[in-house]
Amino acid sequence: MTTLLEVSDLTVEFRTARGWGVAVDGVDLSLAPGRTLAVLGESGSGKSATARAIMGVLPATVGRVGRGRVLLDGQDLLRLPPQERRAVRGARVGMVFQDALSALNPVLPVGYQIGEGCRVHLGMSRRAARRRALELLDLVGIPDARRRIDDYPHQFSGGMRQRVMIATALAADPEILIADEPTTALDVTVQAQILQLLATLQADRQMSLMLITHDLGVVAGMADDILVMYAGRVVEQGPADDVFERPTHPYTRALLDSICTADRKGQPLRVISGQPPDLGNLPSGCAFRTRCTQAADVCRTLPPATAVSPVHQAACHFAGGAA
């Protein structure tokens, strides 16, 4: 399996009252061309921080990358000079944010906001960019796009606005699309439509899609690969079928158990007993051990990523089957 995007040992830190706190700790992930990777995890597990680090939009002055590499076609984005990094953003990697209402500029027409990417990366004239914006609005399913192109974000419904957001991300035809919980802010009925749109776009354009989501039903339907995060670390990753078949980390199992009982498509992850960990005060070793039914003394040491199969790993001391 060739990889397009290869993240290794990525560490993201945020400024806290007690100094820099680690929010993402040594994440490895890879994205293959034309495949969909679903990133799962409770809120606060570092999914957005990972995506933002890859994209280079960590909050200035309070967030930073500690160490690690983000290789795109073998080139480390984190070490590119600013101008070259900028040429990658939007052009090769696009990003869809969670809340389109705040992520779109309130005082600029949507057509302009979509066209910007075309002008900057594809060297289009204003007029050509506008034509392209119109095509993109059509593509993402905005009815009567010709009439809506000069409307402002607040004039669209939540679902339509997220479609506009997707159009802006697609403007310069990126190979990779990162969507950070693109449906969390939407009504349940609209969520499915947006996900369907993303799936269609991914398939038609042979894009790689990194889909951060809470929705396990979506993962089952769309993901080729799954990556589960807990407290800033990857606890399990592998092809979706393998992970569903043999969930190995107790955290992944707990997540899956919560949907096995019934069809819970469209539902958020069921809450697992116990508190999500406080990043400033993580338990030593496996961060999940304080909530884990299987925890033993060995869990006080950091579990290595253990191969469940050649393509499927879990970071658990019991992953080898010893339990």
């Binding site: 939007g90 944010f97 310069a172």
Partner: peptide, 27 residues
């Protein structure tokens, strides 16, 4: 300057000047 839409503008790969003038200053 720290609004969400500025992150979007950065993620689109716009030049700094365009982000400041068209997005931040305009708002």
């Amino acid at each position: 300057r720290y609004a969400d839409y500025v992150d979007t503008a950065i993620a689109k790969g716009l030049p700094h000047r365009m982000i400041v003038v068209r997005h931040i200053l305009r708002n």
